[in-house]
C-alpha cells in the first residue's frame, strides 16, 4: 500500500508540474491580453517535434534549450503579425484566430512529421534508475523533469516579482493603458509575453514528448485539460494554476491506483442511491480520465471564480 501511495504521489506531482508548465503560459497570456489562446497546446506539440528534429543534430541537451526558444520565436511572430492585427476586431475574432491556428499547426505537423508517433526519446543514460524503492525504478529522466519544472517555477516567480520587466508586466496586467501612457511599449511587451508563454509550452513539450508520446494527437489530448487547469485555478491566477495543476495531476493518478467503485465510496457514507449498480459499478480507475472535467463542472457550479481567481468570469 505504501509503495502505491508513494509512487502515485511522485507520478502525480510530475504530471502536475508538466500541466503547470503548460498552463502558466496560458494563464499569463490570458490575464495580460485577455486572449484565451486555443492554440496553446499546439505550441506544446511544436516544442516536442522541434526538440525531436533538433535533437538528431545537436543532441538532447542543446535541443532542450533551443526548441523552446524556437517555439517562443514562432509564438512572437504569431502575435506580431497575426494576433495584433486581429486584436482590433475584438475578443471573438481573437478567439477564432487562435482556434483556427490550432488546426493549422495540427495539419502542418502531420504534413511535416507524418501521422504516426515519432521515436523521440530521452538519451539512454537518463533511462537508468535514479533510485529503486520497493523494486520499482525511478528513472533519472523523471528526476530531471521535476528539477527542470521547479527551476522554471522559481525563475518565473523571480522574473515576475523581482525584476523590472516583471513589474511592467504586473502593471500592464491591470493598468495596461496607464503603463502605455508612462512611455512603455505595451504592444512589444504583449509580444514578449505571448512569445514567453509559448516558449514555456514548448519546454513542456520538450520534456513531455519522451515522457508521454510525440504524436500529432498530443495537443488534442492535453489541450482541454490545460483549460480546465486555468478555470479551476481561477482565470489569470498563476498560483491558482499551480495548485490546480497539482490537484488534477494527483487526482488522476490516485483515482487509477484506488481499487474501488463509485458504490464502494458512496457506501462509506452509507448512501445507497443506485440499487441496480448500473452507474455505481463504475470503478474509480475508469473515472480517472474524466476527473479534470468533473472537477471543472463542480468548480463552475460551486465556486465560479476558481481556487484563487479574483474576478467572477
Amino acid at each position: 500500500m505504501l509503495e502505491i501511495i508513494l509512487f502515485s504521489l511522485l507520478n502525480g506531482i510530475l504530471y502536475g508540474l508538466l500541466l503547470f508548465m503548460l498552463s502558466s503560459g496560458l494563464t499569463l497570456i490570458f490575464s495580460m491580453m485577455g486572449v484565451l489562446n486555443f492554440a496553446h497546446a499546439s505550441f506544446y506539440m511544436l516544442g516536442a517535434y522541434f526538440a525531436y528534429t533538433l535533437g538528431m543534430h545537436t543532441g538532447f541537451w542543446p535541443a532542450l534549450i533551443l526548441a523552446p526558444i524556437l517555439v517562443g520565436v514562432v509564438g512572437s511572430l504569431v502575435e506580431r503579425f497575426g494576433l495584433r492585427r486581429v486584436h482590433a476586431n475584438g475578443h471573438v475574432a481573437e478567439l477564432l484566430f487562435t482556434f483556427g491556428l490550432a488546426y493549422v499547426i495540427d495539419e502542418l505537423v502531420q504534413l511535416t512529421w507524418g501521422t504516426v508517433a515519432v521515436p523521440y526519446r530521452e538519451p539512454d543514460y537518463l533511462r537508468e534508475p535514479l533510485f529503486t524503492l520497493f523494486g520499482t525504478d525511478y528513472s533519472i529522466f523523471r528526476g530531471v523533469v521535476i528539477l527542470i519544472s521547479i527551476l522554471m517555477f522559481i525563475a518565473l516567480w523571480y522574473l515576475l516579482k523581482k525584476t523590472r520587466v516583471g513589474m511592467m508586466i504586473r502593471a500592464a496586467l491591470t493598468h495596461g493603458a496607464m503603463v502605455g501612457h508612462l512611455g512603455h511599449n505595451v504592444p512589444r511587451l504583449f509580444m514578449l509575453v505571448f512569445g514567453f508563454g509559448c516558449a514555456l509550452a514548448g519546454l513542456a513539450g520538450v520534456i513531455g514528448g519522451p515522457l508521454l508520446a510525440t504524436e500529432p494527437g498530443m495537443a488534442a489530448t492535453l489541450g482541454p485539460i490545460v483549460f480546465v487547469v486555468v478555470v479551476v485555478g481561477g482565470m489569470g491566477s498563476l498560483p491558482g494554476a499551480f495548485y490546480a495543476s497539482l490537484l488534477i495531476g494527483l487526482l488522476q493518478t490516485f483515482f487509477v491506483a484506488i481499487d474501488a467503485s463509485v458504490a464502494d465510496i458512496l457506501g462509506i457514507f452509507g448512501l445507497q442511491i443506485d440499487p441496480y449498480g448500473e452507474v455505481a459499478r463504475i470503478t474509480l480507475a475508469n473515472l480517472a480520465p474524466m476527473t479534470p472535467f468533473i472537477l471543472l463542472v463542480l468548480m463552475l457550479i460551486f465556486r465560479p471564480r476558481g481556487l484563487m481567481g479574483e474576478l467572477e468570469p
Binding site: E3, N11, D259, N286, P289
Partner: peptide, 23 residues
C-alpha cells in the same frame, strides 16, 4: 491479482497502472 480496464487510445501515461501492477 488485478483486472484493469482503461479507456481505448486515451491514456498517455501508464505509470499509475504500472505502480499498481508492481504493488
Amino acid at each position: 491479482v488485478g483486472n484493469d480496464f482503461h479507456p481505448l487510445a486515451k491514456v498517455k501515461d501508464f505509470t499509475p497502472y504500472v505502480s499498481k501492477i508492481q504493488a
